[in-house]
Design a binder for these strands. Structure first.
Lengths: 154, 154
DNA sequence: TATTACGAAGGTCAAAGAAAGTCAAAATAA
DNA sequence: TTATTTTGACTTTCTTTGACCTTCGTAATA
């Protein structure tokens, strides 16, 4: 007996193929179609369309709300994906951050100005919260910005 | 399921383009045209034509009343300085941030990709700290990034 | 002429409606 | 048992609607 989550996963992937890697859907509509709880859609998205599987999700609530699924354009051992999923862990220092950002600039992945913007956002001074939390938030933000760079390549 | 507010937004923007950034309209007339409550027009103006998005609204009641929408056009450096020194202040929300960043992108101050990077760094989700602190840190980071942009323009 | 009354705008605010998100308990599969 | 999936109650966000308020111009009135 195929698990419903797998069926929904396949369904979404078929839609994604038809629409060249980008897709907007209605959570409640889909849930109704599969006769399941709306939150099961979230479960499928969280487990099958996660970042390390190469997908990016955004959504909006309220009237006319939607969920957008974007299939990121990446080759298997993408350096950015490696940074996001492995190199940058739960927490990271200002120095490590600067090294990483300089490095991807030198590789031509980002411009000099982008490097400047990213670094300026991640200094100890700017993230003025207790040190133990600071590294965690810095890691969060850095990863989010790298995802944005991944996304902008699509 | 296109939101009516978005349709009205687009309609107004088309009119604005045709009239070179300045436009007068009748609230009731527009509401009748879109078959909606007149107050929905106010909602659209408040959410889509705010100062942060680069528009200025004035209006007059009574016979011969009107609503005037003006698309602002300021000097780029002055506007960045204004944002840094006045607008952003001690704390700022995710939505306000998005409006401001989209706006400076539309003015050609930053690229689309830079806008994406900046916005993604400043979401509630990414700055995962208590809400009262979150806005403060977001304001800090946003200002730091705008300063980086200012410097890289020279 | 000065005042008042009325209709024609636009403004405000809160409630209702329309999505999506979260989280943990219950059910099922490995 | 342990891990994964399914469900449902509750929350948050955004939009739409409607009742009531304020302002302005003009016509009628004192």
């Amino acid at each position: 007996m195929a698990r419903l989550s797998d069926v929904i996963e396949d369904f979404i992937k078929t839609l994604l193929k038809q629409s060249e890697g980008e897709l907007e859907l209605q959570r409640n509509e889909l849930a109704e179609y599969f006769e399941c709880a709306p939150s099961q859609i979230n479960y499928v998205l969280a487990t099958r369309f996660s970042l390390d599987r190469g997908y990016y999700i955004e959504s909006r609530r309220g009237g006319g709300g939607f969920i957008r699924i974007v299939q990121l354009d990446l080759d298997k051992d993408d350096y950015l994906l490696h940074l996001i999923n492995e190199r940058i862990g739960r927490t990271i220092s200002e120095n490590e951050t600067n090294d990483i950002v300089t490095n991807i600039m030198e590789r031509g992945i980002i411009t000099e100005r982008e490097a400047l913007i990213i670094k300026s956002a991640l200094t100890d001074k700017v993230i003025a919260i207790p040190a133990n939390l600071r590294g965690v938030i810095r890691a969060n933000i850095l990863k989010a910005m790298l995802v944005a760079i991944l996304r902008s390549r699509v």
